[in-house]
Design a protein around this nucleic acid. Sequence first.
DNA 1: GACGACATACCAACCAGTTGGTATGTACCC
DNA 2: GGGTACATACCAACTGGTTGGTATGTCGTC
Lengths: 208, 208
Amino acid sequence: MTTAAQLRPPDARAKLLDAAVKVIRKQGFTATSVDDLCKAARVTKGAFFHHFESKEALGVAAANYWSATTSALFESAPFHAPRDPLHRVLAYVDFRIGLLNGPVADVTCLVGTMVQEVYESSPHIAEACDASISGHARTLEADIKSAMQLYKVKGNWSAASLAIHTQAVLQGAFILAKAKGDTAIAIDSARHLRRYIELLFATKGSKA
Amino acid sequence: MTTAAQLRPPDARAKLLDAAVKVIRKQGFTATSVDDLCKAARVTKGAFFHHFESKEALGVAAANYWSATTSALFESAPFHAPRDPLHRVLAYVDFRIGLLNGPVADVTCLVGTMVQEVYESSPHIAEACDASISGHARTLEADIKSAMQLYKVKGNWSAASLAIHTQAVLQGAFILAKAKGDTAIAIDSARHLRRYIELLFATKGSKA
DNA sequence: GACGACATACCAACCAGTTGGTATGTACCC
DNA sequence: GGGTACATACCAACTGGTTGGTATGTCGTC
Protein backbone atom coordinates (compact mmCIF):
# COMPACT_ATOMS: atom_id res chain seq x y z
CA MET A 1 0.00 0.00 0.00
CA THR A 2 1.26 3.48 -0.86
CA THR A 3 1.53 5.77 2.09
CA ALA A 4 0.89 9.50 2.05
CA ALA A 5 4.57 10.15 2.52
CA GLN A 6 5.44 8.11 -0.55
CA LEU A 7 2.96 10.04 -2.63
CA ARG A 8 4.27 13.40 -1.41
CA PRO A 9 8.09 13.32 -1.58
CA PRO A 10 10.18 16.55 -1.89
CA ASP A 11 7.05 18.63 -2.16
CA ALA A 12 8.26 21.96 -0.79
CA ARG A 13 11.15 22.09 -3.24
CA ALA A 14 8.89 21.90 -6.28
CA LYS A 15 6.47 24.42 -4.82
CA LEU A 16 9.33 26.82 -4.10
CA LEU A 17 10.69 26.52 -7.64
CA ASP A 18 7.28 27.23 -9.14
CA ALA A 19 6.82 30.18 -6.82
CA ALA A 20 10.30 31.47 -7.64
CA VAL A 21 9.57 31.63 -11.36
CA LYS A 22 6.32 33.43 -10.76
CA VAL A 23 7.47 35.91 -8.13
CA ILE A 24 10.96 36.69 -9.44
CA ARG A 25 9.62 37.48 -12.89
CA LYS A 26 7.40 40.09 -11.30
CA GLN A 27 9.60 41.55 -8.60
CA GLY A 28 13.12 40.67 -9.69
CA PHE A 29 15.52 38.48 -7.77
CA THR A 30 16.89 40.98 -5.27
CA ALA A 31 13.54 42.49 -4.38
CA THR A 32 12.15 39.03 -3.69
CA SER A 33 12.82 37.98 -0.11
CA VAL A 34 13.04 34.42 1.09
CA ASP A 35 9.88 35.11 3.08
CA ASP A 36 8.12 36.25 -0.10
CA LEU A 37 9.02 32.95 -1.72
CA CYS A 38 7.91 30.92 1.28
CA LYS A 39 4.62 32.75 1.49
CA ALA A 40 3.94 32.27 -2.24
CA ALA A 41 4.81 28.58 -2.00
CA ARG A 42 2.91 28.13 1.28
CA VAL A 43 6.00 26.69 2.87
CA THR A 44 7.99 27.62 5.95
CA LYS A 45 11.43 29.15 6.06
CA GLY A 46 12.79 25.99 7.57
CA ALA A 47 11.70 24.06 4.50
CA PHE A 48 13.36 26.63 2.27
CA PHE A 49 16.76 26.26 3.89
CA HIS A 50 16.37 22.53 4.08
CA HIS A 51 16.20 22.31 0.29
CA PHE A 52 18.43 25.26 -0.66
CA GLU A 53 21.51 26.17 1.26
CA SER A 54 21.14 29.85 0.42
CA LYS A 55 19.04 32.30 -1.53
CA GLU A 56 21.72 32.22 -4.21
CA ALA A 57 21.39 28.44 -4.49
CA LEU A 58 17.66 28.89 -5.05
CA GLY A 59 18.52 31.31 -7.82
CA VAL A 60 20.73 28.77 -9.54
CA ALA A 61 18.10 26.06 -9.12
CA ALA A 62 15.40 28.36 -10.48
CA ALA A 63 17.49 29.11 -13.58
CA ASN A 64 18.02 25.39 -14.18
CA TYR A 65 14.34 24.70 -13.59
CA TRP A 66 13.53 27.41 -16.11
CA SER A 67 15.85 25.79 -18.64
CA ALA A 68 14.17 22.44 -18.15
CA THR A 69 10.59 23.65 -18.41
CA THR A 70 11.19 25.95 -21.37
CA SER A 71 13.17 23.40 -23.36
CA ALA A 72 10.34 20.94 -22.82
CA LEU A 73 7.92 23.54 -24.15
CA PHE A 74 10.00 24.28 -27.24
CA GLU A 75 10.77 20.66 -27.99
CA SER A 76 7.10 19.80 -28.18
CA ALA A 77 6.16 22.97 -30.06
CA PRO A 78 4.78 22.75 -33.61
CA PHE A 79 7.41 24.91 -35.33
CA HIS A 80 9.60 21.88 -36.13
CA ALA A 81 7.11 20.59 -38.69
CA PRO A 82 8.08 22.37 -41.95
CA ARG A 83 10.39 20.53 -44.34
CA ASP A 84 12.30 23.66 -45.28
CA PRO A 85 14.76 24.53 -42.49
CA LEU A 86 14.29 28.25 -43.17
CA HIS A 87 10.57 27.81 -42.61
CA ARG A 88 11.33 26.12 -39.32
CA VAL A 89 13.41 29.09 -38.21
CA LEU A 90 10.72 31.53 -39.24
CA ALA A 91 8.09 29.36 -37.58
CA TYR A 92 10.17 29.52 -34.42
CA VAL A 93 10.01 33.32 -34.49
CA ASP A 94 6.28 33.14 -35.13
CA PHE A 95 5.92 30.79 -32.19
CA ARG A 96 7.80 33.26 -29.99
CA ILE A 97 5.52 36.04 -31.23
CA GLY A 98 2.52 33.95 -30.27
CA LEU A 99 3.99 33.51 -26.79
CA LEU A 100 4.00 37.28 -26.38
CA ASN A 101 0.30 37.44 -25.61
CA GLY A 102 -0.61 38.17 -22.02
CA PRO A 103 0.52 40.31 -19.11
CA VAL A 104 4.15 41.43 -19.34
CA ALA A 105 5.20 39.57 -16.21
CA ASP A 106 3.85 36.29 -17.58
CA VAL A 107 5.60 36.34 -20.95
CA THR A 108 9.07 37.57 -20.06
CA CYS A 109 12.19 35.53 -19.47
CA LEU A 110 13.21 34.54 -15.94
CA VAL A 111 16.92 34.19 -16.64
CA GLY A 112 17.14 37.41 -18.63
CA THR A 113 15.60 39.22 -15.70
CA MET A 114 17.87 37.58 -13.15
CA VAL A 115 21.19 37.88 -14.94
CA GLN A 116 20.75 41.61 -15.35
CA GLU A 117 20.58 41.96 -11.58
CA VAL A 118 23.24 39.55 -10.42
CA TYR A 119 25.87 39.38 -13.14
CA GLU A 120 28.37 41.19 -10.91
CA SER A 121 27.35 39.80 -7.54
CA SER A 122 26.64 36.15 -8.21
CA PRO A 123 28.73 34.33 -10.82
CA HIS A 124 26.90 31.09 -10.05
CA ILE A 125 23.50 32.47 -10.99
CA ALA A 126 24.95 34.34 -13.97
CA GLU A 127 26.49 31.12 -15.24
CA ALA A 128 23.21 29.24 -14.94
CA CYS A 129 21.40 32.04 -16.77
CA ASP A 130 23.99 32.05 -19.53
CA ALA A 131 23.69 28.30 -19.87
CA SER A 132 19.92 28.67 -20.23
CA ILE A 133 20.07 31.35 -22.92
CA SER A 134 23.04 29.91 -24.81
CA GLY A 135 21.61 26.42 -24.61
CA HIS A 136 18.32 27.56 -26.05
CA ALA A 137 20.07 29.46 -28.83
CA ARG A 138 22.01 26.31 -29.69
CA THR A 139 18.74 24.49 -30.46
CA LEU A 140 18.28 26.86 -33.40
CA GLU A 141 21.73 26.41 -34.88
CA ALA A 142 21.13 23.23 -36.85
CA ASP A 143 18.12 24.63 -38.68
CA ILE A 144 19.94 27.87 -39.46
CA LYS A 145 22.93 25.96 -40.75
CA SER A 146 20.76 23.75 -42.93
CA ALA A 147 18.98 26.80 -44.30
CA MET A 148 22.31 28.43 -45.11
CA GLN A 149 23.32 25.40 -47.10
CA LEU A 150 19.98 24.97 -48.82
CA TYR A 151 19.78 28.62 -49.82
CA LYS A 152 23.49 28.85 -50.49
CA VAL A 153 23.80 31.84 -48.19
CA LYS A 154 27.20 32.93 -47.02
CA GLY A 155 27.91 36.09 -45.09
CA ASN A 156 30.48 37.08 -42.56
CA TRP A 157 28.16 35.71 -39.91
CA SER A 158 27.75 32.19 -38.58
CA ALA A 159 24.68 30.14 -37.72
CA ALA A 160 25.67 30.35 -34.06
CA SER A 161 25.91 34.12 -34.25
CA LEU A 162 22.46 34.48 -35.80
CA ALA A 163 21.01 32.08 -33.25
CA ILE A 164 22.39 34.18 -30.40
CA HIS A 165 21.15 37.33 -32.09
CA THR A 166 17.58 36.05 -32.07
CA GLN A 167 17.83 35.76 -28.31
CA ALA A 168 19.28 39.25 -28.00
CA VAL A 169 16.35 40.69 -29.92
CA LEU A 170 13.85 38.80 -27.79
CA GLN A 171 15.53 39.84 -24.53
CA GLY A 172 15.62 43.45 -25.67
CA ALA A 173 11.98 43.23 -26.67
CA PHE A 174 11.15 42.16 -23.11
CA ILE A 175 12.88 45.22 -21.70
CA LEU A 176 10.95 47.54 -23.98
CA ALA A 177 7.73 45.77 -23.06
CA LYS A 178 8.48 46.33 -19.40
CA ALA A 179 9.28 49.99 -20.01
CA LYS A 180 6.05 50.53 -21.95
CA GLY A 181 3.95 48.20 -19.86
CA ASP A 182 2.76 46.58 -23.06
CA THR A 183 3.90 43.58 -25.11
CA ALA A 184 2.86 45.16 -28.43
CA ILE A 185 6.25 46.80 -28.78
CA ALA A 186 7.95 43.45 -28.21
CA ILE A 187 5.88 41.84 -30.94
CA ASP A 188 6.91 44.64 -33.27
CA SER A 189 10.58 44.00 -32.60
CA ALA A 190 10.16 40.29 -33.11
CA ARG A 191 8.61 41.03 -36.50
CA HIS A 192 11.71 43.03 -37.40
CA LEU A 193 13.74 39.98 -36.45
CA ARG A 194 11.61 37.83 -38.72
CA ARG A 195 12.07 40.31 -41.56
CA TYR A 196 15.83 40.29 -41.03
CA ILE A 197 16.00 36.52 -41.33
CA GLU A 198 13.87 36.62 -44.48
CA LEU A 199 16.16 39.24 -46.01
CA LEU A 200 19.29 37.28 -45.10
CA PHE A 201 17.99 34.26 -46.99
CA ALA A 202 16.46 36.11 -49.91
CA THR A 203 19.65 37.60 -51.32
CA LYS A 204 19.42 35.61 -54.55
CA GLY A 205 15.71 35.88 -54.89
CA SER A 206 15.20 32.22 -54.04
CA LYS A 207 11.75 31.88 -52.49
CA ALA A 208 9.31 34.78 -52.73
CA MET B 1 30.92 88.76 -8.86
CA THR B 2 30.47 84.99 -8.69
CA THR B 3 30.60 83.53 -5.21
CA ALA B 4 31.80 80.07 -4.26
CA ALA B 5 28.25 79.10 -3.50
CA GLN B 6 27.17 80.05 -6.99
CA LEU B 7 29.96 78.01 -8.49
CA ARG B 8 29.30 75.02 -6.29
CA PRO B 9 25.58 74.96 -5.54
CA PRO B 10 23.71 71.72 -4.67
CA ASP B 11 26.91 69.73 -4.56
CA ALA B 12 25.74 66.57 -2.84
CA ARG B 13 22.91 66.16 -5.31
CA ALA B 14 25.27 66.03 -8.29
CA LYS B 15 27.63 63.68 -6.50
CA LEU B 16 24.76 61.37 -5.60
CA LEU B 17 23.51 61.30 -9.17
CA ASP B 18 26.95 60.43 -10.50
CA ALA B 19 27.34 57.74 -7.87
CA ALA B 20 23.89 56.38 -8.67
CA VAL B 21 24.73 55.85 -12.32
CA LYS B 22 27.97 54.12 -11.46
CA VAL B 23 26.73 51.91 -8.62
CA ILE B 24 23.27 51.01 -9.95
CA ARG B 25 24.73 49.88 -13.27
CA LYS B 26 26.88 47.44 -11.35
CA GLN B 27 24.58 46.25 -8.61
CA GLY B 28 21.13 47.03 -9.87
CA PHE B 29 18.65 49.39 -8.24
CA THR B 30 17.21 47.15 -5.55
CA ALA B 31 20.54 45.76 -4.42
CA THR B 32 21.91 49.27 -4.05
CA SER B 33 21.11 50.68 -0.62
CA VAL B 34 20.86 54.34 0.23
CA ASP B 35 23.96 53.84 2.37
CA ASP B 36 25.83 52.41 -0.62
CA LEU B 37 24.96 55.51 -2.59
CA CYS B 38 25.98 57.86 0.21
CA LYS B 39 29.27 56.07 0.70
CA ALA B 40 30.08 56.13 -3.03
CA ALA B 41 29.20 59.82 -3.22
CA ARG B 42 30.99 60.65 0.07
CA VAL B 43 27.88 62.22 1.41
CA THR B 44 25.81 61.62 4.52
CA LYS B 45 22.36 60.17 4.69
CA GLY B 46 21.04 63.52 5.80
CA ALA B 47 22.22 65.02 2.53
CA PHE B 48 20.57 62.22 0.59
CA PHE B 49 17.14 62.78 2.08
CA HIS B 50 17.59 66.51 1.89
CA HIS B 51 17.79 66.31 -1.91
CA PHE B 52 15.59 63.27 -2.59
CA GLU B 53 12.45 62.56 -0.69
CA SER B 54 12.84 58.82 -1.11
CA LYS B 55 14.98 56.18 -2.77
CA GLU B 56 12.37 55.99 -5.51
CA ALA B 57 12.71 59.72 -6.16
CA LEU B 58 16.46 59.20 -6.55
CA GLY B 59 15.69 56.51 -9.09
CA VAL B 60 13.53 58.85 -11.12
CA ALA B 61 16.15 61.61 -10.91
CA ALA B 62 18.89 59.18 -11.94
CA ALA B 63 16.89 58.13 -15.01
CA ASN B 64 16.38 61.77 -15.99
CA TYR B 65 20.04 62.53 -15.34
CA TRP B 66 20.94 59.60 -17.56
CA SER B 67 18.69 60.96 -20.31
CA ALA B 68 20.37 64.35 -20.10
CA THR B 69 23.96 63.11 -20.11
CA THR B 70 23.46 60.54 -22.85
CA SER B 71 21.55 62.87 -25.13
CA ALA B 72 24.36 65.40 -24.76
CA LEU B 73 26.83 62.68 -25.72
CA PHE B 74 24.85 61.64 -28.79
CA GLU B 75 24.12 65.17 -29.92
CA SER B 76 27.80 66.04 -30.06
CA ALA B 77 28.81 62.69 -31.57
CA PRO B 78 30.31 62.57 -35.07
CA PHE B 79 27.74 60.26 -36.67
CA HIS B 80 25.59 63.18 -37.81
CA ALA B 81 28.18 64.24 -40.39
CA PRO B 82 27.31 62.15 -43.50
CA ARG B 83 25.08 63.76 -46.12
CA ASP B 84 23.21 60.54 -46.82
CA PRO B 85 20.64 59.95 -44.05
CA LEU B 86 21.12 56.19 -44.37
CA HIS B 87 24.81 56.66 -43.74
CA ARG B 88 23.94 58.67 -40.65
CA VAL B 89 21.83 55.84 -39.33
CA LEU B 90 24.54 53.29 -40.03
CA ALA B 91 27.12 55.63 -38.49
CA TYR B 92 24.93 55.75 -35.40
CA VAL B 93 25.08 51.96 -35.11
CA ASP B 94 28.84 52.08 -35.65
CA PHE B 95 29.09 54.70 -32.94
CA ARG B 96 27.14 52.44 -30.58
CA ILE B 97 29.45 49.56 -31.46
CA GLY B 98 32.43 51.75 -30.59
CA LEU B 99 30.83 52.51 -27.24
CA LEU B 100 30.79 48.79 -26.49
CA ASN B 101 34.48 48.71 -25.58
CA GLY B 102 35.27 48.34 -21.90
CA PRO B 103 34.01 46.48 -18.85
CA VAL B 104 30.40 45.32 -19.09
CA ALA B 105 29.24 47.50 -16.20
CA ASP B 106 30.66 50.63 -17.83
CA VAL B 107 29.02 50.25 -21.22
CA THR B 108 25.50 49.10 -20.34
CA CYS B 109 22.38 51.19 -20.04
CA LEU B 110 21.23 52.50 -16.67
CA VAL B 111 17.56 52.78 -17.53
CA GLY B 112 17.40 49.38 -19.21
CA THR B 113 18.83 47.87 -16.06
CA MET B 114 16.49 49.75 -13.75
CA VAL B 115 13.23 49.28 -15.61
CA GLN B 116 13.67 45.52 -15.63
CA GLU B 117 13.71 45.53 -11.85
CA VAL B 118 11.03 48.04 -11.00
CA TYR B 119 8.48 47.93 -13.82
CA GLU B 120 5.91 46.35 -11.51
CA SER B 121 6.81 48.06 -8.25
CA SER B 122 7.57 51.64 -9.25
CA PRO B 123 5.57 53.17 -12.09
CA HIS B 124 7.38 56.49 -11.60
CA ILE B 125 10.81 55.04 -12.29
CA ALA B 126 9.47 52.89 -15.10
CA GLU B 127 7.97 55.96 -16.74
CA ALA B 128 11.23 57.87 -16.51
CA CYS B 129 13.08 54.90 -18.01
CA ASP B 130 10.59 54.61 -20.83
CA ALA B 131 10.92 58.33 -21.53
CA SER B 132 14.69 57.93 -21.72
CA ILE B 133 14.62 55.01 -24.14
CA SER B 134 11.73 56.25 -26.26
CA GLY B 135 13.16 59.75 -26.35
CA HIS B 136 16.50 58.48 -27.56
CA ALA B 137 14.83 56.33 -30.20
CA ARG B 138 12.94 59.38 -31.41
CA THR B 139 16.23 61.12 -32.24
CA LEU B 140 16.80 58.48 -34.93
CA GLU B 141 13.40 58.80 -36.55
CA ALA B 142 14.10 61.79 -38.80
CA ASP B 143 17.16 60.20 -40.38
CA ILE B 144 15.37 56.91 -40.90
CA LYS B 145 12.41 58.68 -42.45
CA SER B 146 14.67 60.69 -44.78
CA ALA B 147 16.48 57.52 -45.78
CA MET B 148 13.18 55.82 -46.55
CA GLN B 149 12.23 58.65 -48.86
CA LEU B 150 15.64 58.92 -50.49
CA TYR B 151 15.89 55.19 -51.13
CA LYS B 152 12.19 54.89 -51.90
CA VAL B 153 11.79 52.14 -49.35
CA LYS B 154 8.34 51.16 -48.20
CA GLY B 155 7.60 48.20 -46.00
CA ASN B 156 4.91 47.44 -43.50
CA TRP B 157 7.13 49.06 -40.90
CA SER B 158 7.50 52.68 -39.89
CA ALA B 159 10.53 54.80 -39.12
CA ALA B 160 9.42 54.94 -35.49
CA SER B 161 9.16 51.18 -35.35
CA LEU B 162 12.66 50.66 -36.73
CA ALA B 163 14.05 53.29 -34.36
CA ILE B 164 12.58 51.47 -31.39
CA HIS B 165 13.85 48.17 -32.73
CA THR B 166 17.42 49.46 -32.71
CA GLN B 167 17.04 50.10 -29.00
CA ALA B 168 15.59 46.66 -28.41
CA VAL B 169 18.57 45.05 -30.09
CA LEU B 170 20.99 47.13 -28.06
CA GLN B 171 19.20 46.41 -24.79
CA GLY B 172 19.15 42.71 -25.57
CA ALA B 173 22.83 42.84 -26.47
CA PHE B 174 23.53 44.24 -23.00
CA ILE B 175 21.75 41.32 -21.37
CA LEU B 176 23.76 38.79 -23.35
CA ALA B 177 26.96 40.66 -22.50
CA LYS B 178 26.07 40.46 -18.83
CA ALA B 179 25.30 36.76 -19.11
CA LYS B 180 28.57 36.02 -20.89
CA GLY B 181 30.60 38.58 -18.96
CA ASP B 182 31.91 39.87 -22.26
CA THR B 183 30.85 42.64 -24.62
CA ALA B 184 32.00 40.76 -27.74
CA ILE B 185 28.63 39.10 -28.04
CA ALA B 186 26.93 42.48 -27.85
CA ILE B 187 29.09 43.83 -30.66
CA ASP B 188 28.13 40.82 -32.73
CA SER B 189 24.44 41.50 -32.24
CA ALA B 190 24.88 45.17 -33.09
CA ARG B 191 26.55 44.11 -36.34
CA HIS B 192 23.47 42.01 -37.15
CA LEU B 193 21.41 45.13 -36.56
CA ARG B 194 23.63 47.08 -38.95
CA ARG B 195 23.26 44.35 -41.56
CA TYR B 196 19.48 44.41 -41.15
CA ILE B 197 19.34 48.13 -41.81
CA GLU B 198 21.57 47.74 -44.87
CA LEU B 199 19.33 44.99 -46.21
CA LEU B 200 16.18 47.02 -45.61
CA PHE B 201 17.53 49.85 -47.72
CA ALA B 202 19.18 47.72 -50.39
CA THR B 203 16.04 46.12 -51.78
CA LYS B 204 16.34 47.86 -55.14
CA GLY B 205 20.08 47.51 -55.38
CA SER B 206 20.62 51.24 -54.84
CA LYS B 207 24.00 51.69 -53.17
CA ALA B 208 26.42 48.78 -53.03
C1' DG C 1 17.56 85.93 11.78
C1' DA C 2 15.87 83.14 8.22
C1' DC C 3 16.98 79.80 5.00
C1' DG C 4 19.35 76.30 2.35
C1' DA C 5 22.74 72.69 2.71
C1' DC C 6 24.23 69.62 5.04
C1' DA C 7 25.60 66.29 9.56
C1' DT C 8 24.55 63.12 13.56
C1' DA C 9 21.94 60.03 15.91
C1' DC C 10 18.47 57.19 15.87
C1' DC C 11 14.28 53.90 14.84
C1' DA C 12 11.00 50.19 13.55
C1' DA C 13 10.64 46.91 10.04
C1' DC C 14 12.72 43.67 7.52
C1' DC C 15 16.51 40.78 5.91
C1' DA C 16 19.04 36.11 5.17
C1' DG C 17 20.22 32.62 7.74
C1' DT C 18 20.29 29.48 12.30
C1' DT C 19 18.54 26.99 16.03
C1' DG C 20 16.61 23.02 18.22
C1' DG C 21 13.09 20.34 17.50
C1' DT C 22 9.30 16.68 15.51
C1' DA C 23 7.34 13.28 12.49
C1' DT C 24 8.09 9.92 9.33
C1' DG C 25 10.45 6.66 6.65
C1' DT C 26 14.35 3.38 5.60
C1' DA C 27 18.38 0.09 6.04
C1' DC C 28 20.36 -3.41 8.22
C1' DC C 29 21.22 -6.83 11.65
C1' DC C 30 19.50 -10.37 14.75
C1' DG D 1 9.39 -9.03 13.22
C1' DG D 2 11.45 -6.16 16.29
C1' DG D 3 15.00 -3.07 17.53
C1' DT D 4 18.80 0.12 16.71
C1' DA D 5 20.78 3.66 13.73
C1' DC D 6 20.27 6.94 10.61
C1' DA D 7 18.09 9.90 6.93
C1' DT D 8 14.67 12.94 5.09
C1' DA D 9 11.29 16.57 5.27
C1' DC D 10 9.73 19.85 7.56
C1' DC D 11 8.47 23.56 11.33
C1' DA D 12 8.28 27.78 14.78
C1' DA D 13 11.03 30.85 17.02
C1' DC D 14 14.91 33.44 17.05
C1' DT D 15 19.35 36.37 15.85
C1' DG D 16 22.47 39.84 14.33
C1' DG D 17 22.80 42.89 10.99
C1' DT D 18 20.76 45.99 7.35
C1' DT D 19 17.04 48.60 5.45
C1' DG D 20 14.61 53.07 4.12
C1' DG D 21 13.39 56.79 6.53
C1' DT D 22 13.15 60.51 10.44
C1' DA D 23 14.15 63.96 14.06
C1' DT D 24 17.05 67.27 15.40
C1' DG D 25 21.00 70.08 15.22
C1' DT D 26 24.82 72.98 13.07
C1' DC D 27 27.02 76.11 9.99
C1' DG D 28 27.68 79.59 6.53
C1' DT D 29 25.38 82.91 3.57
C1' DC D 30 22.19 86.61 2.29
